[in-house]
Design a protein around this nucleic acid. Sequence first.
DNA 1: CTGATGTTAGTACCAAGTGCTAATAGCGGG
DNA 2: CCCGCTATTAGCACTTGGTACTAACATCAG
Lengths: 194, 194
Amino acid sequence: MRRPKKERQQALKDTIRDNPFVTDEELSVEFDVSVQTIRLDRMELAIPELRERIKHVAVKTFEDEVKSLPIDEVIGEIIDIELDKKAISIFDVKPEHVFQRNQIARGHHLFAQANSLAVAVMNEELALTVKSELQFLRPVTAGQRVVAKAEVIDSHPEKNRAFVKVVSAVDQVTVFIGTFEMYRMTEQSEGDEK
Amino acid sequence: MRRPKKERQQALKDTIRDNPFVTDEELSVEFDVSVQTIRLDRMELAIPELRERIKHVAVKTFEDEVKSLPIDEVIGEIIDIELDKKAISIFDVKPEHVFQRNQIARGHHLFAQANSLAVAVMNEELALTVKSELQFLRPVTAGQRVVAKAEVIDSHPEKNRAFVKVVSAVDQVTVFIGTFEMYRMTEQSEGDEK
DNA sequence: CTGATGTTAGTACCAAGTGCTAATAGCGGG
DNA sequence: CCCGCTATTAGCACTTGGTACTAACATCAG
């Protein structure tokens, strides 16, 4: 099934994109040409060798991993915090956070930033969200920086409850408001921080 | 700065964990021992060679990519959907979704599942969340499967608005309730039911 | 002094290439 | 039918980052 050069090169591109882990040897079998032809094709198409391809994928993952680690704790970056009072975090909206269609940030990212900030501002290691009311006032698009300000507006330590209000803004314009009823998981016997 | 074997091997492990892209050559310089010693150390510690390490990272990323693609669209997996009426999705809570401390799922994951399901059930490509009220009734822990059921309870096509109620349960027990006011971004020009 | 442990050196070999030269095949036009 | 062109194939030297193995030390303890 020898196909003409151009067609083969297109197929080659696709094959390697789908599976970067394939060797020239394997490709030569698949396309029924010599290894050298595969190499020439790769050169013409500027496709790097197997090891470089793999490395590229790995580096990408590695960088992503570093990026997603802090995300696990708090979505966005906390730039100011006063425990039990208020906190501020920023979150840069990237292409992966938006609907492809219209570039508008998906609601759960704004929620995640606000909610994790609400958790962080509580002077508790184990705060849980009980209830919450959200308003998505304006769409946020990729490239924008969301500044979320959380404020503890009402605290009932005896009931292990607190209310946190989070207001998020882009360029001073409010885009999101959320109120969170939080539950403190630790009893108010002090000093059992860990 | 030659340290005893044991100490060096521990440091070696850490170094490679932090940066899997380092060669034996570079390590031998860093620890001021011969390349052979590094190789012996790696063998004792069962650490694979550079290329295998890189490949491992790459494969991981590659698999994750496949996994995270649908996640970008809908958090959880849609198992049933009737456009403009109702939809069901399941979401398996994994270790990365919970607080390390108490294994309880972070709120924004439950929200994300519910919110993206609310978006999906709308018979619109471009639905946005306007307002939302949430109740986190019971904590969800790693290993549990959350089944979210979304229902369009009120639709005002003329105002481009709709209300969606999502109830999430683990083993038939309700753990989360959310109501979402959604905005349809497209004009209701045609009756394109599907 | 002997032995065990740890370290270093050196060789052969491997995979998956690059870079280069040279031969050959196939085909189209004049 | 031959000329020239492109495409393909072959072969060789060399590269990286190793494995596998052997052999030579070094150091210290008993």
